[in-house]
Design a binder for these strands. Structure first.
Length: 475
RNA sequence: GGCGGCAUGGCCAAGUGGUAAGGCAACGGAUUGCAAAUCCGUCACCCCCGGUUCGAAUCCGGGUGCCGCCUCCA
């Protein structure tokens, strides 16, 4: 089998077919850096991460680009009423918009590292690509897909018949929706702004169409094409991006070049929090920083987000996160056990049970990144290896297979021990001495004390004692 | 109003025609100074009704319930 994906445009599972065999040009819609990204945002960034990792493990050479939106999007298409998110945040925090962008961009990268999300090859900033946007707007004006009116430039949707194909939103529906604010100067309610002017706006640039700032959607089509070329193999985003953002991107990109813009669209479903929609106004959301402060292992967060396939609704709960943490701890201990069982042996030919587990993993991933099924492969590998008490070459083979799976999931790998905690080591040693002397009271007292420090003791059969951080304790 | 998704054991969740993966929890056992951890084992007939079929969780029709998008949002 080869990689198959659910293509949002074609609305079915299709074989992945990049323009150039073996190479992948991938663009992911990234964050708008006006506040800290939340767990829901990271679901789709993590989805893009897993997608890239699986393609690479499958032998593709991937170029991944994710945009950073650091110029505000108006909330409303009417410049008179528009409130800009970047500028609102700037006002609230009493910083200028550029400082806001800088602050939250830095935080975004920090959170990526925390969740072990691999860095994309490029993170283009909207503010660094104003000339490319102006150029694309000019192309659209030249080709008759756009028009100027009252200091703004609008896309003429009637000039692009394919508009609505991705989202299924027909013109009639849009008008019937009646939530589209109709600017007087627009020829058609569906028309959207490519360039706007507003003397009060803080971020402004000169352009052939007058001093102003770019519209909501032009940045992604301009940046993706200027970096990856006119046709992308993969374009991802959250499901909310489908309309209007991606619909407009297609109109802009294909209007400007006349060539197909994207070969495959993929969209991550939103996650729910405690059974409901996440909402900033209700305050029911988590940022990565908040979860870390609460003492949760970031890798457990990664696991909790991965165990449900990206196109399924995922209900994120704290008990669910604890479950994930338990599963991760068990896998990690298993990996350690396998290392010992392998005892430095070279991996032997994989036994049938191992091949079956690997196949389960691979086929699941090939099937539109079915991470739930893939985890079945991981745990089956573990259970079979345990049941058979494998050692030597078989253990080495199992470990090698596990490591390969973990190149995609990245939840088993342990961070390099940062600090060999002298205090903990000392306590553990004193407890071992107490136990040898059958001084159970002292031994248990030390055990309790370690538990308070977030240290769990793992007493082995042969008197060997290991310890690990539970991740939940105060440290 | 338009478009779309989902309903599988206590919880999470695979599985698209042949008699239900996996995780967490629970229970029994091994192990342990006691515990924890770990290991072994046990634990479901798939929302309702009707239909197609030798045979359906899986296909069709009709219900019921939950959710998302259509508006800034991943």
């Amino acid at each position: 089998m080869s990689f198959h994906l659910y293509d949002s445009m074609r609305r079915e599972k299709v074989p992945f077919e990049p323009l150039i065999p073996g190479k992948v040009a991938m663009y992911n819609c990234g964050p708008t850096v006006y506040s800290a990204a939340h767990i829901g945002n990271f679901r789709s960034f993590l989805f893009a991460d897993v997608l890239r990792r699986w393609l690479e493990v499958s032998g593709y050479e991937v170029t991944q680009v994710m945009n950073i939106t650091d110029v505000g999007h108006l909330r409303d298409d009417d410049p008179e009423q528009g409130a800009d998110k970047m500028e609102e945040a700037a006002k609230k925090e009493q910083l200028d918009p550029w400082k806001i962008a800088e602050k939250y961009t830095a935080l975004f990268f920090e959170d990526l590292d925390t969740l072990r999300i691999q860095r994309a090859h490029q993170y283009p900033r909207a503010t660094d690509h104003i000339p490319q946007m102006i150029e694309q707007i000019q192309q659209l004006l030249d080709s008759g897909h756009a028009y100027e009116a009252s200091g703004a430039v609008y896309y003429d949707v009637s000039s692009f018949p394919a508009y609505g194909r991705l989202s299924g939103n027909t013109g009639d529906d849009l008008i019937a929706g009646a939530r589209v604010a109709v600017a007087e100067e627009k020829k058609d309610p569906r028309d959207f702004a490519l360039w706007k002017s507003d003397p009060h706006h803080l971020m402004q640039w000169d352009s052939p169409f007058g001093r102003g700032f770019p519209g909501w959607h032009i940045e992604c089509s301009a940046m993706s094409q200027s970096i990856l070329g006119e046709t992308l193999d993969l374009h991802t985003g959250g499901e909310d991006n489908v309309f209007p953002h991606h619909e407009c991107e297609i109109a802009q990109a294909e209007g400007a070049t006349g060539k197909p813009f994207v070969r495959h669209w993929m969209h991550a479903r939103h996650l729910m929090l405690d059974g409901g929609k996440m909402s900033k106004s209700l305050g029911n959301l988590y940022t990565i920083g908040q979860l870390a402060e609460m003492g949760h292992d970031p890798v457990a967060v990664r696991f909790a987000l991965l165990r449900v396939q990206y196109r399924q609704v995922l209900n994120f709960t704290l008990p669910g996160l604890e479950e994930a943490a338990t599963a991760v701890r068990r896998l990690r201990l298993f990996a350690t056990d396998m290392e010992e069982a392998a005892a430095g042996a070279e991996p032997g030919d994989p036994p049938a049970w191992l091949t079956a587990a690997v196949q389960r993993f691979d086929e699941s991933m090939d099937d539109d990144l079915n991470t739930s099924g893939a985890l079945d492969g991981v745990f089956t590998l573990m259970n079979e290896a345990n049941r058979r008490k494998v050692t030597g070459p078989d253990a080495a083979a199992a470990l090698a297979a596990l490591r390969r799976m973990d190149r995609v999931l990245d939840v088993v790998r342990e961070d390099a021990p940062e600090d060999l905690d002298a205090e903990v080591e000392d306590l553990v040693r004193r407890r071992t001495e107490a136990r040898a002397a059958k001084d159970w009271a002292t031994a248990d007292e030390i055990r309790d004390r370690l538990a308070e420090l977030g240290i769990e003791l793992l007493d082995g059969k042969d008197g060997k004692v290991r310890w690990r951080r539970t991740g939940a304790g105060a440290s």
